[in-house]
Design a protein around this nucleic acid. Structure first.
Lengths: 343, 343
DNA sequence: CTGTTAGCGCTTTCAG
DNA sequence: CTGAAAGCGCTAACAG
């Protein structure tokens, strides 16, 4: 049973033929062109509706040389952080009739590069990119600006790129978290940082250091351990290392909630009580965080807003033909959320 | 400083002009057409490379009347389940030069319908859909099959639609879970189910009932409670209800890990020991699950494979011009993962 | 106000 | 083996 009968979609010429007018007239009628008689306009619109006419976007795309598609590149889509950013992007794009294609770099420079390549070849109208942690050279992104393809960087900075950017004020969030630990009496505060190629990790680390020094606490190098990723498993070893120290910390501030969850697991396993003996504060406010025992204190990030703002800025640039000379750099504000894992 | 100089991309006519041949010749050379002299072919290819020629997909799309884009519609992207399915889809699509656009229905029928609409109007080459829990009529999907647009349903079934489908064998997974609880001595086993409009919830519920009866355990209606969603928060009230029963359960099998996490939270809060007093088993194997105390027993689902297989089946249909009469329905197998929350 | 023409970039007959 | 011409569906000059 072969169902070949594709209901061939009605075209503008079809309507023109039926109405015995020129295709251009139909086009004008459908696009609210000023100089067209009410009569023909109505006739066209009515027939179009009756025939369920839908403009062929493929034709329009070729003509206008755009695709109405935005390319979004993130390290991974399974993390709460990025998936909710994507939600924000989508909610700005869709009402504008724009679509997005998503690429996951899996934190790999090579994959990121090849995604950029394919997105360029499908001619996306613009890019929203949060670079991978492996990405240290930015030629593949410079190509975009060189070719006048709009690009907004979000969350993770590329200092050498002079383009629109949207961030969360990591420094502030981290500073508040560490300061809170100090104020609640912790004196041996450790930090599990992330891949230091990332601006986010660097800013949080900087805030950690400066918060300590602002409160005249010594900075001990052995209290800074690097996690190689953002999942709970990446928090395991760093935490073990910290607990094995001759003088273990009485607080741990982690790069994110994932790592904090791994840390709490190790700490509880070791029979150490949170927060009495060790306080823990994460970063992100993952929806799971409040269901752990104790519930995880953390720094909430405006993920959805981050996505929306990035998309809005990109749209502005696209709609202005990338003719805005001034580059925008925006910062959104995080918020400390105190729960059970800290005093 | 206005950067208007768009490096206009080289076209096939450009190459033709430079080589003093016809555009069609260039086209043939570039597409390995048999009847073309080695000489011209090489000349064309060389110049094309030198000029960094990239075919204009927009033009090809109009000509071939396809977009090389697949529309993927999921209830939400922030859940581990769906985001990892998407990873599988992507890994099949990209090597084929296909892209995907994603739509989140947010479990809303209206949103789902409107996403289908926009995806049709951008002329995606095919659909991969997991319907929302609100979706009870399927006219918006029948339109697709009526218009010969390939469609694969995954994870959540629409019985009245006769199209390719890919599922996980929910029944088997759930049956094993409940059977395990019985074998480890639990006798008052409760089930927190999900929205019963979903085939997934219905199959798991059915398995729960039949596992009990297979082992001659009574089915008590008060042991079946419905969660209105899949997040931890949706597990709170159902669990409270169960604990308040004159004879509370000694085990809870939940619709998924999210709800199980909410359930464990309530149980621990009530000072009840897991698994000694109450066993808990979830469904999904969310990466967070093993970091809870106790770690959550669950049913692992082959999410990535689910995505890959769905995409492969869709591709097959697209590449065959939707000319395959036999509909494929595939089932993948889940696996019981026993951890600390069960005996 | 409306029709004619040209063209977006590419492939595919149809002739040579 | 190669060129000329037509056309995918639509819009935007340019004439009337």
């Amino acid at each position: 049973m072969c169902n070949k009968m594709i209901k061939s979609r009605t075209t503008i010429t079809e309507i023109a033929r039926l109405l015995k007018v020129a295709p251009s007239t139909v086009s004008r009628a459908l696009n609210n062109h000023p100089k067209i008689s009410e009569k023909t306009r109505n006739a066209v619109i009515e027939l179009a509706r009756k025939l369920n006419y839908q403009p062929n976007l493929l034709a329009l795309n070729l003509l206008k040389n755009r695709t109405n598609t935005i390319g979004v590149i993130v390290p991974e889509i399974t993390s709460y952080f990025f998936s909710s950013v994507i939600g924000g992007i989508q909610d700005v794009l869709n009402p504008q009739g724009l679509n997005m294609i998503i690429g996951q770099s899996n934190e790999s420079y090579q994959e990121e590069k090849s995604i950029v390549q394919t997105f360029v070849s499908v001619r996306v109208d613009g890019f929203l990119i949060s670079p991978s942690s492996e990405t240290k050279t930015f030629d593949h992104l410079k190509v975009l600006t060189d070719n006048n393809i709009p690009l907004v960087i979000f969350d993770r900075d590329c200092e050498e790129l002079n383009v629109d950017k949207v961030f969360v004020d990591e420094y502030k969030g981290a500073f508040q978290a560490v300061e809170y630990l100090i104020k609640t009496g912790c004196r041996r505060i450790a930090h599990i940082t992330g891949p230091l190629s990332l601006s986010t990790a660097r800013h949080r680390l900087k805030a950690y250091k400066e918060a300590l020094s602002a409160h005249n606490l010594p900075l001990k190098e052995e209290y800074i351990v690097e996690a190689s990723g953002f999942a709970p498993e990446h928090g395991i070893d760093p935490t073990k290392k910290l607990l094995a120290l001759p003088q273990p910390p009485d607080a741990i501030f982690t790069i994110n909630d994932g790592v904090a969850i791994g840390a709490m697991f190790v700490i509880k396993e070791a029979g150490i009580v949170i927060p009495n003996e060790i306080s823990v504060i994460g970063f992100d406010d993952d929806p799971h965080s409040c269901y752990f025992k104790p519930s995880l204190s953390t720094v909430w990030q405006p993920t959805y807003e981050l996505g929306m703002l990035s998309a809005r800025i990109l749209l502005k640039r696209i709609n202005s033909n990338n003719d805005i000379s001034k580059v925008r750099v925006e910062k959104l504000f995080p918020e400390l959320v105190i729960r059970g894992s800290s005093k």
